[in-house]
Simulated assay, not measured.
Amino acid sequence: MKSTLRIACSRAHLQQVRDFVRNYLNSRSLPEITVNQVVLAVDEVVANFIIHANNEDETQFLDLELAFEKQELNVEIADHGDTIFLPGAHQSPDLRAYIREGRKGGMGMALVNRLMDRVEFFTRGNHTVCHLSKHLA
């Protein structure tokens, strides 16, 4: 079963995204830790699309699609902005350096890669798509 949501590119819609993902996953009686991991990963990717790819332009929108196929959760986040947003390869950041430098930010995609089994960014036409998947036993 698939479920979809369209939002304008504004941080004000992040709670709506979190609630949408949580409700979808809770309806499948998944462990709370799994639900929290997926909610966090989706929230991070959506926030990156809103902030970095669309500069919080509320005339732009994102489409989210959640679907279960066998024992796998698939999440697709499609950006319909005017720019292509393909984050580079994300290696694990040097946490000691981050702490020493007092840096903030830059950890999100590394976290997403740890929480999800597969993270892919690609283009479809002139739009960016992020596909996340997680195997669920």
Rank of each mutant, 00 (worst) to 15 (best):
P31D: 04
V45G: 01
D82L: 13
Q91T: 11
A89G: 09
A89P: 09
A67Q: 09
R100H: 12
M107A: 08
H52M: 02
A89C: 04
V45N: 00
E58T: 06
A78V: 08
S92I: 15
R22D: 15
V35H: 00
P87M: 03
R103M: 11
F85N: 13
D94E: 01
Q91K: 15
R28Y: 14
F61G: 08
R100L: 14
V46T: 01
F49D: 02
Q60V: 07
E72T: 15
H52Y: 01
E72H: 13
E58M: 11
P93I: 03
R22N: 10
R103F: 11
N26L: 13
G81K: 15
I51F: 01
K104Y: 13
K104W: 10
E72F: 13
F20H: 12
V39K: 10
F68D: 06
L86T: 09
M107N: 11
R100M: 15
D94P: 01
I51Y: 01
E72N: 14
E58P: 07
G106C: 11
K70N: 05
R103V: 04
L25W: 10
G105P: 01
I51Q: 06
M109H: 12
N26R: 12
V21E: 02
D19N: 14
H52W: 06
V17D: 06
D57E: 10
M109D: 04
L66H: 05
K70W: 10
N74K: 13
S27C: 10
Q71A: 13
I84D: 09
L111I: 00
V38Q: 00
H90Q: 12
T83I: 08
Q16A: 05
A97L: 15
S29V: 07
P87I: 03
F85I: 12
S29Y: 13
I51S: 09
E65S: 05
G88R: 12
F61P: 03
N74W: 14
N55D: 09
V35Q: 00
V42A: 08
A67D: 13
L64D: 04
I50N: 12
K104G: 03
D19S: 15
D19G: 14
F49N: 02
L111D: 04
N54P: 01
V42E: 00
F20S: 09
V42Y: 03
N26C: 12
F85P: 11
D94G: 08
N36I: 03
R103K: 12
G88F: 07
V45Y: 04
N36M: 10
H80W: 11
A53K: 04
P31A: 02
P93E: 04
F49V: 01
L73T: 03
